[in-house]
Write a protein that binds this DNA or RNA. Structure first.
Length: 498
RNA sequence: GGCUCGUUGGUCAAGUGGUCAAGACGCCGCCCUCUCAAGGCGGAAUCACGAGUUCAAUUCUCGUACGAGCUGCCA
């Protein structure tokens, strides 16, 4: 039988990374077996609906490459794929009535006051188990209430005896006492189904073979099983996934600041890196490889290797992985992402990819920008790292002359001044400011002086950058700055040291 | 409170009744080197605890502790 999985989000805001992983695993399970993956919108909660959330879902599916075979915007044989539309079609009420006929569900007219009176507080928490009060209403009483237009819900009728058992493909067999199971509401008083009910009905009607979801549903699954049984339907395979937590081992929340896919992309993470990272949270491949393209994930993904224990979402490792993706990015796409950040380090108005004017007044060509881009590629983990690493190109910082002192290089303000004074005329005479030419002419000087490279290069790099550490060395920086700006900065260095 | 699930280095994790208990991130050190990266090499660091089964338990069983989830006319 062909595998069919579905991703069934509620349009309530951004896409939580837990949901994203669920969607990914559902996608991978289907694609791995050449099955089908469908998108269904579960908008049965009118109150929580957020304007625009639907667009976020579509956009996220698109950006993450989770293409579905059927969905609201991809008609298939099981539509509509939006639950509110299915409500209008009367689907859920029809099935709820089937259950009522069978005695597996019943109308309940209890008002809020009566329900409240059933609540008890145990160790600070309010708990409530419905007492089946309305189960005992006669057919005539129910009809009379219905005719009178009394608001009602339809509840599942779960016996108080016996146990219910199901097998989860990850967690194994799970058994609960039926008396622990509440007579949950199937149809709400506004006529909408609850998530639990709509889910079962739709998964069956849509031919879903594998239900994949977060482990927060593990303890309510027995109720689902009873529903499938009540209908006489075959239950799907259940695959419950371990929780993703924050550093404090609590469920990832909005407070953590990186709980949603959109949070992450705003922070400069690449969709494919997020997907790759999230795939490894709760699942591991057979080998030691960790970098997986979507296609490789599809091939390698065996959901039986999903593990049971919760996983901490580690931003540090995500950053590393994102850096790996950046390093192996093709040039065009890399530039597409990186150029805006490079440009943002040169705030002067009118700057473009082809030419920028620095705040110090130097003119840098497109070629210089290329070199900055090259320098950055192995030095960043996310693109927003760029500006602060290259700020010294735009404006020479007002640095402390003590920066010329470096024990290992054996430099100090005195010999640094000497170096700058002696190299200045060489650099003034030099016309070719390409990396190689600069290298040759300075190395020739170093050879002549008979000193270690660092004795000369440390002060030079300090003078042209004004920073303790820089991407690239003295030659790279001088090449990028060009002759005029290089000389200006060296003269400033000489002034500072004099 | 009840129910359910979980527990291998700081984090992600592999793994098995007998292993020197993989690998990755991070950390530390070394090499390279004008700094920072990248790259290469190496290091420290783990089977929650207590019983039981067994010649042998990280692995199987039970219990304890801790953590999480559920206990909504939310999903």
């Amino acid at each position: 039988m062909k595998i069919r999985t579905r991703y069934a989000p509620s349009p309530t805001g951004r896409m939580h990374v837990g949901n994203l992983r669920t969607a990914l695993y559902e996608y991978l399970i289907a694609r791995h077996e050449d099955g089908e993956f469908i998108l269904r919108i579960e908008d049965t909660d009118q109150e929580r609906f957020v304007e625009g959330a639907l667009d976020i879902i579509y956009r996220t599916m698109e950006k993450t490459g989770l293409d579905y075979d059927e969905g609201p915007d991809k008609p298939g044989d099981c539509g509509p794929y939006v639950q509110s539309e299915r409500v209008t079609a009367g689907i859920y009420m029809e099935y709820a009535k089937v259950l009522v006929e069978k005695g597996e569900a019943y109308y309940c007219f209890c008002d809020k006051e009566r329900l409240d009176s059933l609540k008890t507080t145990v160790s600070g928490k309010e708990i409530m188990l419905y007492d089946k009060h309305c189960l005992h209403l006669s057919k005539e009483e129910v009809q009379a209430n219905l005719d009178a237009g009394k608001p009602f819900v339809i509840r599942q009728n779960i016996p108080n005896e016996g146990t219910t058992t199901f097998v989860d493909d990850i967690y194994g067999a799970i058994t609960v006492e039926n008396k622990e199971l509440d007579d949950m509401i199937l149809i709400k008083s506004d006529g909408y189904p609850t998530y639990n009910f709509a889910n079962v009905v739709d998964d069956h009607l849509m031919g879903i073979t594998h239900v994949v979801r977060g482990n927060e549903y593990l303890s309510s699954t027995p109720k689902y099983i009873r529903l499938y049984d009540a209908f006489g339907w075959e239950a799907p395979v259940f695959v419950h996934l371990p929780l993703i937590t924050d550093e404090e081992h609590h469920k990832l929340s909005k407070r953590s600041g990186h709980s949603s896919f959109e949070d992450l992309t705003e922070q400069g993470f690449l969709p494919e890196a997020v997907i790759n990272y999230v795939a490894l949270l709760g699942w591991s491949p057979e080998g030691n490889e960790e970098i997986f393209s979507k296609q490789q994930l599809i091939e390698a993904f065996d959901y039986r290797r999903v593990n049971k224990s919760p996983a901490v979402f580690d931003m540090v490792k995500l950053r590393w992985m994102n850096g790996e993706y950046i390093k192996s990015m093709d040039q065009a796409r890399y530039e597409e992402y990186a150029v805006p950040y490079v440009l943002s380090a040169f705030p002067k108005a009118g700057n473009t990819r082809q030419q920028v004017v620095t705040s110090d007044g130097a003119v840098l060509s497109g070629g210089s920008l290329d070199k900055i881009l090259d320098l950055m590629k192995t030095r960043i983990e996310v693109f927003p790292d760029i500006p602060e690493k290259i700020d010294f190109f735009d404006r020479l910082p007002d640095y402390d002359p003590e920066m010329y002192t470096h024990k290992k290089m054996k430099t100090n303000p005195e010999n640094s001044l000497e170096t700058l004074k002696e190299t200045l005329p060489i650099l003034e005479a030099q016309e070719d400011y390409s990396l190689d030419a600069l290298h040759d002419v300075i190395m020739e000087y170093i050879g002549r002086k008979g000193v270690k490279n660092g004795v000369v290069l440390w002060p030079l790099r300090t003078a042209v950058s004004g920073k303790q550490s820089t991407p690239g060395g003295a030659f790279e920086i001088m090449e990028i700055l060009g002759k005029e700006e290089t000389l200006r900065r060296i003269r400033i260095g000489i002034e500072k040291l004099s």
